[in-house]
Amino acid sequence: MPSRVRRGAAVVAVAGGALSLVGAAAPDPATPTGAVDPADAGATTALRLTTDASAAEAAVPPLAEQRSLRPVAPATDVLDAAGLVKAVRLAERQAVAEAERKAAAQRAEAERKAAAAKAAAVTGSLGCTLSTAGLGPVKPWVADAAEFLGCLFGRPPMIGVASRGNASDHPSGHALDFMMRGAAGDRLAACALRNKEALGITYVIWKQRINYGSGWETMDDRGGETANHYDHVHISFATSAPGGRPAAC
């Protein structure tokens, strides 16, 4: 057991967690060997705590350096002004084209309905309903003229859309052939010319002659009865719907 140290007999220096005694310390004869003076116990405890605290402080590493963070703006695409203008102009052209297409379709439908109403008024007064389904996809006013003239002249066989070896209005749906001969053909050709404006007719061919509305003109011989139009009346029509109402002949 260590000897008791008399209070004030020695100076203790604490440096860097190590203890050093400064001066001499003599044992206290009044205190039995192995006993601890209560007054010195507190000092010893305080000394131990101070030493432990210093050691703990030395063991704690310095705080890590806190670096400031600078916000980074998100990446953005560079605006291509020329490309944007081009895209806008393209969209505008497409919108204009679509509007024009719709307007043209509406006009065509209105013209078709007007022509159908006009033809229905005439053929209705004749008490005639004639199907034009066999003519193919002829224009609406061509179908109306076929119904009008067909009802007037005994429903003759008719040809609408058809292929031709030479220049013709048949493939595009702008022509009709009324298969008839003689006086019946004469009357039908004359009636068609009388209603030329109302039916939208451009010319009539009959018996190797052509009439644009100002009289008959002789045509070249094409070498046959059908080619020279002796067995049918050919009627060609305009590319747009006519106006007016045809009159019975």
Rank of each mutant, 00 (worst) to 15 (best):
D186W: 06
G213L: 12
N166F: 11
D186Y: 04
D177W: 11
I210H: 07
K196T: 14
E225W: 03
I201M: 01
I205W: 11
G213W: 13
G154A: 11
E197C: 01
V204E: 00
A192P: 12
V204C: 00
G173P: 09
W216Q: 00
G215E: 07
Y203W: 07
T202Y: 05
V204M: 03
N211P: 12
G224R: 15
D221F: 02
Y212W: 15
W216S: 02
M219K: 14
A183W: 15
C191D: 05
P156Q: 11
G182C: 07
E217N: 01
I159M: 05
P171K: 04
F178I: 04
L188G: 07
L193V: 01
E225M: 03
Y212G: 12
P156N: 08
A184V: 14
L188D: 09
D186P: 01
D221P: 02
V161Y: 09
P156G: 09
G185W: 10
P157V: 10
E197D: 10
E217H: 00
R181C: 05
D186L: 04
A175H: 14
Y212C: 09
L188H: 06
L193N: 00
R194C: 08
H174D: 15
A192F: 13
T218K: 14
H174G: 15
W216L: 04
T202W: 01
R155W: 11
W216G: 00
A162M: 13
F153T: 06
R187E: 14
R194Q: 12
L188S: 07
Y203T: 00
S163H: 13
H174V: 14
E217W: 03
G160A: 12
R222L: 13
G223D: 10
D186E: 08
V161W: 05
R209H: 06
Y212Q: 13
M158N: 07
A183S: 12
A198D: 11
P171M: 00
N166G: 00
A167C: 05
G223T: 12
A189N: 15
L193Q: 01
G165Y: 15
D221K: 01
R209Y: 03
W206F: 03
V161L: 10
G154E: 13
R155E: 08
A189L: 14
G200K: 05
I159N: 02
G213D: 10
P156D: 13
R222T: 14
Q208I: 04
G165W: 13
A184E: 15
G224A: 12
G173E: 14
D186K: 09
G185M: 04
T218V: 12
V204I: 01
N211M: 02
A184P: 12
A190Y: 07
N166Q: 09
Q208R: 11
G165A: 11
R187A: 15
M158L: 01
R155D: 14
G213H: 08
V204H: 01
G182M: 09
D220H: 13
G213I: 10
A175C: 14
R155G: 00
R155A: 05
R155C: 03
F153D: 06
G182R: 04
L188C: 06
N166T: 03
F178K: 11
D186Q: 11
E225S: 00
P171W: 06
I210A: 06
P171F: 04
